[in-house]
Every structure is written in C-alpha cells, then in structure tokens.
C-alpha cells in the first residue's frame, strides 16, 4: 500500500473518517506518521478552544481577584487556587465522575461524559485559572503613570479599561501567557491517557502513539514521532504568539521593546 493511500485512509481517522480498522500488522513508518498526525487534530481542537474560551474567563477572574468587593474576590481566588493547586489527573477524574452523575439528572449533560465536551470543560477551567493568575500579576504591575494618564484624558470605567488597562495587562502578561499556551497543548495529551475513554479508537496523538508502541512493542519509534510533532506545534505556537507580542508592543521605542520581551518569564 502506497503512502499516499495510507494518508487517504487514515489521515482523518481520529475523527472517524476513513478506514474503520486500524492497521493490525506490517506497520510502516508512513502509517505511524499519518495516524499520530491525525490524532493531533484532537490536541489542537482541545488546545485552541480551551485557550480561546479560557482567555475571557481568565480576564474576568483576574479582575475578580483584584476587585475590592469580597463577593467577587473570594470566589475568584478559590477557583484559581483549586484549579492551579491540583493535578490535572485528579481534575479529570472528578470531572468524569461528576458528569456521569449529572447525566442521570438531566439529558443536557449527556455529551459531557465523552471527551470532546467533558475534557474540554476541564481544560477550559484549568487554563482559565492559570491564565488568570498570570493576568492578575500583570494587572498589579501596570505602571501607575499609565492609569493616571488615562484619568487625565477624562477616561473612566469601560473606555479606560478597554483602551488602557486591558492592553497594558496583555502586553505585560504575554510572555507568561505564551508558556501557558504551550503547557496547555501538552496537557491535552492527558485526556485519553487517563481521563476519558476513547471511543471507536478515535483518540489523540498520544493515543495512537501508544497504540503503535503496543502493537510493535517498540517505544522508540512512535514516541519520538509524537515528540517531533509536538516540537513543531510548540514552534508554531511560539511563532503566532510572537506576532501578537510584536503588535502589543508596537508603540514602544525599540530599546524598551526588547527589555519587555526579556522580562523574566512567568511560566505557569
């Protein structure tokens, strides 16, 4: 079977398109590259959606944690503490249990016991908590002068937040947030590894790497392939986030720009 044929058959296997049966014997490198790559679709799906949705919740949580009102501050603090303070392993475990019991309460919760929705919710909360902590740190280190200048222009409330505080917060938090994004994509490999069952052999990149490691009894081929895919993915993330970083810092003089980029990385 030619490699092109393999890609046709298995390129989208992870989402159920193509051959139903996975290869059972005579494993080729092409099959391993194709299937592990096809599984990457899930990692990207979980990563991108959780990150995008988590961004907004994180902003809200960071503002909540910085708020003066107890009723806003305490819940935000606890949310961040619980999701940052416990391993993802345990979060997946409890979420799966919880969603299973909610299922009997209302059919609305049906999809949450499968990975595509259930694991996504956990990852979404998890990344929101980590990002919120990074945003909160940045919020506290916004230069006083910037806020005072906004006041002097007569800005207050929403316009002041949208045009001064929020962009500055993002600019300061961006290096740390980049690291969080990398960690989140890595964390997506845990979904089928320990958290949620894989259905009809539709799994993520690690799932297929394990499948091959198990079928060929040789861990030294599939896992390095997986590693290579992830290094590429990480480079893409760093590249994209670098572009945003350039845009966030475009108003600064060149010398200062460099300094900000080299701020100590607040990694997760």
């Amino acid at each position: 079977m030619s490699c092109a044929q393999t890609i046709m058959d298995y390129g989208l296997r992870s989402i159920g398109i193509g051959e139903r049966l996975l290869p059972r014997s005579d494993f080729t490198l092409c099959q391993q590259f194709t299937l592990i790559g096809s599984g990457l679709v899930w990692n990207i799906y979980f990563g991108v959606i959780a990150l995008a949705a988590g961004f907004f919740l994180a902003t809200a949580l960071a503002l909540g944690k910085g708020a003066r009102s107890r009723w806003l501050r305490k819940p935000s603090e606890w949310f961040i503490f619980i999701f940052r303070g416990s391993p993802l392993f345990i979060q997946f475990f409890f979420a799966y249990f919880l969603f299973l019991s909610l299922k009997s309460v209302h059919p609305f919760f049906d999809p949450f016991s499968s990975a595509w929705a259930g694991a996504l919710v956990v990852l979404f909360f998890n990344t929101a908590a980590y990002s919120a902590e990074i945003f909160y740190g940045a919020l506290k280190s916004i230069p006083r002068g910037d806020v005072e200048a906004a006041d002097a222009y007569g800005m207050s409330g929403w316009p002041r937040f949208r045009r001064v505080i929020w962009p500055t917060m993002l600019r300061l938090a961006w290096p740390g947030y980049t690291n969080e994004a990398i960690f989140l994509f890595h964390a997506t490999t845990l979904v089928f590894f320990s958290g949620f069952p894989a259905q009809q052999q539709k799994g993520d990149a690690l799932y297929y790497a394990r499948y091959f490691a198990d079928q060929t009894f040789n861990p030294f081929v599939p896992y390095p392939i997986l590693a290579a895919y992830f290094i590429l993915l990480t480079l893409v993330i760093i590249g994209l986030f670098g572009l945003v970083n350039r845009r966030l810092n475009r108003h600064l003089p060149a010398e200062q720009r460099r300094k900000i980029r080299l701020r100590p990385n607040l990694i997760r």
Partner: peptide, 18 residues
C-alpha cells in the same frame, strides 16, 4: 486498552470504548 479483547471488539463492528 491494548488487550486482545479491545482488538476483537474493534473488528467486530461494535462501538469500542477503551
């Protein structure tokens, strides 16, 4: 996962949950 039973179910046409 990764037992002969999982392999058998995958081939049987049923929906496999691993």
């Amino acid at each position: 996962a990764s037992t002969i039973q999982a392999g058998y179910v995958a081939e049987s046409g049923a929906t496999l949950l691993e």
